[in-house]
């Protein structure tokens, strides 16, 4: 294709948006509204996932060593656990440190613990974190079999329930997003089809005077691309603005909340990129499918 022809197609595609003003408006609105809904759910799903991850990361295994264990044995056990490829970090907490932590947790009632320093009943503890949180249970089992390990504790039962819940939330989120994306695609493609139906005479005439099929397609391609991208820009602006406001509210003033929203910076770019790609893709796809029907003369 010659550069001049490409220029003509781009010009023509852009001009057609104006010429078919109302149809353009209808298509762009359809893209905007569906992508807005999709965007809201996308942000929601990403944040729910983020919160689930935060919660999962708090899961850890506490390994209590037996009373005979001294510092050397503790290091040996720590090395053994670290050798496990599923394990991320192992931290050693001596019984003295353990008592300090306990005191802190008691706060004003720490006096109750006075006198325990001389005869510390707490065991030395190793805190193990899994690389993948859902592996926690199996790591705990393996660790429990090691020598000098008195007991392990990782919130058995509760943790399993937590993982089932977060997995369910993720799956529902994915199904929802995919379903919504498909609905959006068909809705938008349909609207674009209507706008092209109104122009089958134009296509018919182009064919009659000997335009090649690709020559006919290109302006529609450009038009679809523009409609999809413009349609995506509107929800991107709304969502970024809205999210900025929300992050500001939640992450600064509501510090008591145990979770935080995903930061503005990567999220808004990611969502913008996703929406604009979907918009452009369905714009092009919708108009190509529709033109194809009229090209079969």
């Amino acid at each position: 294709m010659k550069i001049r022809t490409l220029g003509r197609h781009v010009r023509e595609g852009a001009k057609n948006l104006g010429r078919n003003g109302w149809m353009t408006f209808a298509s762009v609105s359809a893209v905007s509204i569906t992508l807005l809904i999709l965007g809201v759910f996308l942000i929601l799903a990403l944040n729910v996932n983020h919160i689930a991850q935060t919660v999962e990361k708090q899961v850890e295994i506490r390994v209590f060593l037996d009373v005979l264990a001294d510092k050397t044995i503790a290091t040996q056990v720590q090395d053994q656990i670290e050798a496990n490829p599923k394990v991320d970090t192992v931290t050693f907490i001596s019984k003295e440190e353990g008592l300090e932590q306990l005191k802190k947790r008691f706060g004003q009632n720490a006096k109750l613990l006075e006198g325990l320093e001389d005869d510390n009943p707490l065991p030395d503890t190793l805190v193990v974190k899994a690389k993948v949180p859902s592996e926690t249970a199996s790591i705990a089992k393996e660790v429990k079999g090691l020598e000098h390990v008195e007991d392990v504790s990782y919130g058995e039962g509760t943790v399993e329930k937590l993982f089932t819940a977060t997995a369910a939330i993720r799956n529902v989120g994915i199904i929802f997003i995919v379903g919504l994306a498909f609905t959006a695609m068909f809705l938008i493609a349909n609207t674009i089809r209507l706008t092209i139906m109104a122009r089958r005479r134009e296509i018919e005439i182009m064919k009659l005077v000997g335009a090649t099929n690709w020559f006919i397609r290109w302006p529609f391609f450009v038009e679809g691309l523009l409609m999809g991208s413009i349609g995506a820009l509107i929800p991107i602006v709304i969502l970024t603005g809205g999210y900025y406001y929300l992050v500001d509210k939640v992450n600064t003033s509501m510090t008591v909340v145990f979770f935080s929203l995903l930061p503005m910076n990567p999220l808004s770019y990611q969502v913008a990129l996703i929406l604009i790609s979907i918009g452009a893709f369905i714009g092009i796809w919708g108009s190509m499918i529709s033109v194809r029907r009229f090209l079969r003369v």
């Binding site: 001049r4 000997g210 020559f215």
Partner: peptide, 11 residues
């Protein structure tokens, strides 16, 4: 002019 444009006649 449309009929000439679509068969890529020089402007």
């Amino acid at each position: 002019a449309f009929a000439m444009e679509v068969i890529e006649t020089p402007t």
